[in-house]
Design a protein around this nucleic acid. Structure first.
Length: 272
DNA sequence: CGGCGGTCCTGTCAGC
DNA sequence: TGCTGACAGGACCGCC
């Protein structure tokens, strides 16, 4: 499910419930996700939760004793908030009971997600964080900064913007959507993207991510009041999943191709 | 080292 | 209805 907007929305929802609280109990219901669940996970119970931040698609839960819990949702991960009464479900792999009587369940059918614990003052060197590239919603993510990342690249630009060592948070959906918005063909070589095009692409990446977050955020408020579940939104995509349908911008038709074993959607008529 | 393909796992859906 | 195969929004790892 989650790309950056979904992860950010989940982070915001969790922050409201967790900041200033403690976990009263943390329960592993299996030993591993994509990697083994961290030793000492249960021992984070009782530690004050100071803040929740995000780096790329990792949710970072900072405790005031100096450790941070990293949570990645993988392809199918969800974090849901409830009052602790609903029965647990099949893929609820980790359960966090909270001091305010709420309960967070980490549910991940495919188990592509992961968790890790790291020292908060050393996160930049943490195994899963140290190679990460530009944060697309930061001010430092500019046309020239993106151009530098694409320069010399011999791979397709769509593959390049999904490469987390260059730009983080852009997954398969928003890669297609951002390239459509910037009118750039996903098949162009990264190294052939000109500075003006890189500027347009950077702006489009910011635009589609922010729009999705705004949508997720507004959906989130209603949904939390209903039953506390986070991370499921109605999306309106221009090209993703719309192969064979008319382009929303021109008279062309949306095509589906495969790049790096992933589906890409684009309009050959107006993306050059 | 950059780039690419394989791989982890389960659920869902189209097609027969 | 039931089976089968393709595919799914991630990203690490090992190989060239």
């Amino acid at each position: 499910m989650p790309e950056l907007p979904e992860v950010e929305t989940v982070r915001r929802g969790l922050a409201k419930v967790l900041e200033g609280e403690t976990f009263t109990r943390i329960t592993k219901r299996r030993a591993d996700l994509r990697v083994p669940l961290p030793k000492g996970l249960e021992k984070l119970a009782g530690k004050l939760i100071e803040s929740l931040t995000r780096r790329a698609k990792y949710i970072l839960i900072h405790f005031n004793h100096g450790e941070t819990l990293l949570v990645h949702l993988g392809m199918s991960g969800r974090m849901t908030i409830d009052n602790g009464k609903a029965p647990l479900e099949k893929h609820d792999h980790v359960v966090f009971d909270v001091s305010n009587k709420k309960r967070i369940r980490f549910n991940d059918a495919r188990r592509f997600g992961l968790m890790d614990i790291a020292a908060t003052n050393n996160l930049a060197k943490q195994k899963f964080l140290k190679h990460l590239g530009l944060e697309p919603l930061e001010k430092s993510f500019t046309g020239p900064a993106l151009y530098e990342q694409l320069k010399g690249g011999k791979t397709a630009v769509k593959i390049a913007i999904m490469d987390q060592t260059r730009v983080v948070g852009v997954g398969n959906i928003y890669a297609s959507e951002a390239l459509f918005d910037a009118r750039i063909s996903p098949k162009r070589l990264a190294g052939k993207i000109k500075p003006l095009e890189a500027a347009a692409l950077a702006a489009s990446i910011k635009k589609v991510l922010k729009k999705a977050i705004a949508k997720g955020g507004s959906t989130l408020r209603d949904y939390v009041q209903a039953d506390g579940e986070l991370g499921y939104f109605q999306h309106e995509f221009c090209v993703y999943g719309r192969d064979g349908q008319p382009c929303p911008r021109c008279a062309g038709m949306i095509h589906k191709i495969t790049q790096g074993a992933r589906s890409t959607f684009y309009c050959p008529a107006c993306q050059k």
